[in-house]
């Protein structure tokens, strides 16, 4: 039981951080720094928690950044490879929403990302049942 209480405290902390992150992303997007915004959104993901609220909150932020991307190739070139695996996870989360515009955008990025990062990237996303986003 002690574990769950700590988890709850932890969760509030994470939500706070995500809110700060959200403001930072908005300002980055205003400056047309889309890649920076996406990096910021992906930073610290997946939240080391099972708390669904945290995951949803972070997804909203990442979603905002993903939808703002216009130049996908440019974005992937600018994005460091260490972000590829986590980005792939969020793409699958996006696809699971079933929302038309979101799916359109996620599929487009998915195609380009798979070209660059290979099937291994998809495998790492599908097999990781611990660090889910």
């Amino acid at each position: 039981m002690a574990g769950t209480i700590v988890e709850a405290d932890n969760a509030d902390g994470i939500i706070m951080r995500i809110e700060t992150k959200s403001q930072k992303i908005e300002s980055l997007l205003k400056q047309y720094k889309h890649v920076e915004a996406l990096k910021t959104a992906l930073e610290g993901s997946p939240p080391k928690t099972r708390d669904e609220r945290c995951k949803s909150a972070n997804w909203i932020v990442v979603h905002r950044a993903i939808m703002a991307i216009k130049d996908i190739d440019g974005m992937l070139i600018a994005l460091d490879v260490e972000y590829y695996d986590i980005l792939m996870k969020y793409l699958y989360r996006g696809l699971s929403t079933g929302d038309r515009p979101t799916c359109d955008q996620c599929l487009k990025i998915h195609e380009k990302l798979t070209e660059r990062a290979g099937l291994g990237c998809i495998l790492r996303c599908l097999t990781d049942t611990v660090n889910t986003v």
Binding site: I77, D80, V81, D85, I86, R116, A117, G118, L119
Partner: peptide, 16 residues
């Protein structure tokens, strides 16, 4: 270990 890569260089996709 997760997500700590340092030796990150962008890769030009090569065919499978």
């Amino acid at each position: 270990f997760y997500g700590q890569s340092k030796s990150a260089t962008t890769n030009d996709a090569s065919e499978s």
